[in-house]
């Protein structure tokens, strides 16, 4: 589904990503794990087209994404839920969810896609008429992910979906993501804490200083000495 190879990114003459490569097969849940500043968000933003890489390839279902705009990538079926959620504060929950249903035409009808978004995050139904600014952090995260479902994205990029959330909310969002994966969608999560990586993750990649230093299963990561040294405190 998504194949990133030898990706290098420079921002203001600083090398942020070096030789980053990973694969996410269709229907998989893959996590990029690393400390703050390791390059996870930069990787997702580069995949989404916000940052032009210096070199490397990004392929979505054998299609080269380099040179394609964020808009084109969204229309190709990449849904993005950024770290800061970034819901439209002045639009209501219903409008936030409705927006992507007409920007990308798919086989599913807008009503089906809206229903899908609410099915995974039923709490949002109660706040349909509420503006985005009136939502809590957890509700914003839910809405942000729900919008990617309304886009009918095939690949979901979720940047720190559990960041800053109350521990009581995290299991709910984790379950929803699990349901999304069971539905057959492909999910790439950027996560700074290994403890937040869902047990059902197919594979994790550990990033450190802009490089992938480990790739394997969650159990293997827990046993790996390099991973322990990097994010040992959260194991």
């Amino acid at each position: 589904m998504l194949e990133v190879a030898a990706l290098a990114v420079e921002i203001q003459n600083s090398e942020i990503l070096r030789n980053v490569g990973f694969k996410v097969a269709a229907g998989e849940l893959v996590c990029l794990v690393g400390r703050n500043g390791a390059g996870k968000t930069t990787t997702l933003r580069t995949v989404m087209g916000y940052i032009t890489p210096r070199s490397g390839t990004i392929r979505l279902a054998d299609m080269d994404l380099i040179g394609k705009s964020t808009l084109e990538r969204a229309r190709l079926g990449i849904g993005y839920s950024p770290e800061a959620s970034e819901v439209f504060g002045e639009l209501t929950v219903a409008e936030n969810i409705a927006l992507p249903t007409w920007t990308r035409q798919t086989e599913k009808s807008p009503a089906e896609r809206i229903d899908l978004a609410y099915r995974f995050f039923p709490n949002l139904r109660r706040y349909e008429a509420r503006p985005g600014t009136h939502l809590s952090g957890g509700e914003r995260k839910m809405l942000s992910i729900a919008r990617t479902l309304a886009l009918d994205a095939d690949l979901l990029l979720l940047d720190e979906p559990f960041e800053g959330l109350s521990p009581s909310i995290i299991p709910g969002i984790r379950n929803s993501i699990h349901e999304i994966v069971r539905l057959g969608l492909t999910v790439l999560i950027a996560e700074s804490e290994l403890q937040h990586v869902p047990e059902y993750a197919d594979r994790i990649y550990v990033m450190e200083r802009g490089e992938i230093v480990f790739g394997g299963s969650l159990d293997e990561a827990r046993r790996d000495t390099t991973v322990r040294q990097i994010i040992g405190e959260t194991l």
Binding site: M48, Y50, S69, T70, L71, R73, A74, R75, Y80, E86, F88, G89, E90, L91, E95, A98, L99, P100, W102, T103, R104, R147, L151
Partner: peptide
Amino acid sequence: STFGLGLRAIRENEQKAQYLGVNV
């Protein structure tokens, strides 16, 4: 209309609007 909704989304943040498929 949905067009008006798109304009309001752009007014708030064009980057956000783009990754939701709005042709700014």
